[in-house]
Simulated assay, not measured.
Amino acid sequence: MPAAPAGTLAVHRQRLRLDCPVVFPGFRTLTPAEEFRAVADWCDANGVTHDQYGQGDLLTAFEGTVAGLLGKEAAAFMPSGVMAQLIAMRLWTEVSGVPRFGMPHTSHLALHEEEAYQALFNFHGVPVGDRRRPILARDLAAVSQPLACLLVELPLREIGGQLPDWDELQALKELARSRQLPLHMDGARLWESRAYYGRSYAEIAAGFASVYVSVYKGIGGVAGAVLAGGADFIANARLWQRRLGGTLVRQSPMVATAAMRFETRLAQMDACYRRTLDLAAGLGGIPGIRLNPAVPQTNMLHIFFDRPAEMVAETRDAIAGDEGRWVAGEIRSTDVPGWSVTELYVGDTLLGLDNAQVLPYFARLAGV
């Protein structure tokens, strides 16, 4: 029998996932109707009114909350992280007069944005360090060409949520300071990093001239990002947000979906990290499975299977259809023939399930 077209298979798998009462990866996602009812109730309870092109009490308060958490003077809400980070790169290149910035090999700007920084601004992105680990001070020391800024991703998604250790991070900050080189943080998953460091978000962000954080990754808003930094920097960022079409007439719906669960999600991150450590200890004992990193540094990790991606996906689909458990998200091939990998983000679902209820399903994915 011929294989189903890729698009048809993707739709089938999306339906399988939606029909599963239990989804292992991530936090529970509300249906559109549930989301709209929840945000309506929250807005009623908190007296929320619409903003007008970004001007309004809800946005101002939320931006102030995020800026305070990050220890920065000001912050601006934007509809996407892509926009926030392009604006940050634009501003640092303007300040320096150098159309070149450093970034990790696996930066979102390099892999997932269709070369936007080149196409829109004619910038040159310089890969720094080793793609298999976080950027360290010695990596920056090895860069001889002038840079407008260095983009540092905390944590690095493409290597399983890895972070530099605290002393390594401080050494990188100190070297950048001595070179008068601004550091910009891609903090899309910064909220997940505090549990590992055991320090406040402001302490982590200290030494970074600008910081981007997501309000849908981890937090659960429907969309959006916040860019934080000095007051003048953010004033100029708002100008570029307008130029790029990011000052939407109503931003309150996006902000409300983040604000209504912001404190609750941040409060859950420690428990999610502890659960990830416990789960990883169990996963590491399953034949045919390897983890990156072996000891997680955030509540996410990459699980490698000594089995082809399509076989793992077919097993996952069978479990979903027969038992209503969606065990893993995207499963893709690796550079090692015959191996495959999936990313697991530990959210509230796995907080309520112990290893005895979870590990057997991963063993089945591994073919055990």
Results as ranks from 00 to 15, higher is better:
74 A>D: 15
74 A>Y: 03
114 E>L: 10
54 G>Q: 09
84 A>H: 00
59 L>K: 13
71 G>Y: 00
111 L>N: 09
36 F>A: 14
113 E>I: 00
123 F>G: 02
53 Y>T: 01
53 Y>K: 06
95 V>L: 13
32 P>M: 06
57 D>V: 12
100 R>V: 03
69 L>Y: 02
119 A>D: 13
44 D>F: 01
89 M>V: 05
53 Y>C: 06
63 E>Y: 07
67 A>V: 00
95 V>W: 06
111 L>A: 01
35 E>K: 11
99 P>D: 01
61 A>L: 04
131 R>M: 13
136 L>W: 08
86 L>T: 10
67 A>Y: 10
98 V>S: 08
38 A>E: 11
115 E>A: 15
70 L>H: 05
117 Y>A: 15
59 L>G: 14
115 E>P: 04
36 F>V: 13
50 H>C: 13
124 H>G: 03
68 G>N: 00
34 E>M: 05
71 G>C: 09
102 G>H: 02
129 G>R: 05
65 T>A: 10
49 T>S: 15
56 G>N: 00
71 G>V: 08
49 T>I: 12
130 D>Y: 04
87 I>H: 08
88 A>H: 02
54 G>L: 06
43 C>M: 15
113 E>M: 13
51 D>S: 04
96 S>N: 06
134 P>F: 07
64 G>R: 08
136 L>G: 06
139 D>G: 00
110 A>D: 04
35 E>H: 13
144 S>E: 14
74 A>S: 15
85 Q>K: 13
118 Q>D: 14
64 G>A: 00
93 T>H: 02
117 Y>N: 04
145 Q>F: 04
78 M>G: 07
98 V>M: 08
38 A>L: 07
132 R>Y: 11
142 A>K: 09
140 L>S: 09
81 G>N: 10
125 G>H: 10
131 R>E: 13
65 T>F: 08
136 L>D: 06
124 H>Y: 12
59 L>M: 11
125 G>Y: 07
76 A>R: 12
40 A>Y: 10
33 A>E: 14
131 R>C: 12
65 T>L: 14
128 V>D: 00
142 A>Y: 03
49 T>R: 15
124 H>L: 15
81 G>D: 14
96 S>R: 05
125 G>K: 06
46 N>Q: 14
45 A>W: 00
40 A>K: 12
86 L>R: 07
65 T>Y: 08
120 L>P: 01
107 S>F: 07
43 C>H: 07
130 D>L: 03
47 G>M: 04
59 L>V: 14
61 A>M: 03
141 A>V: 10
54 G>H: 00
81 G>I: 14
59 L>C: 11
104 P>Y: 05
128 V>S: 08
37 R>Y: 02
94 E>V: 05
94 E>D: 13
144 S>F: 10
85 Q>W: 06
119 A>G: 01
57 D>T: 12
138 R>T: 12
55 Q>R: 14
140 L>A: 11
124 H>P: 09
89 M>A: 11
109 L>R: 06
131 R>D: 12
58 L>M: 11
33 A>Y: 06
45 A>V: 02
74 A>V: 11
120 L>D: 10
105 H>K: 07
118 Q>S: 04
76 A>P: 03
76 A>Y: 04
116 A>T: 00
89 M>G: 09
85 Q>P: 02
62 F>M: 06
125 G>R: 10
37 R>L: 14
51 D>W: 03
61 A>V: 05
78 M>E: 11
127 P>G: 05
134 P>H: 09
140 L>F: 08
134 P>A: 07
45 A>L: 12
66 V>F: 05
47 G>Y: 01
107 S>G: 15
79 P>S: 04
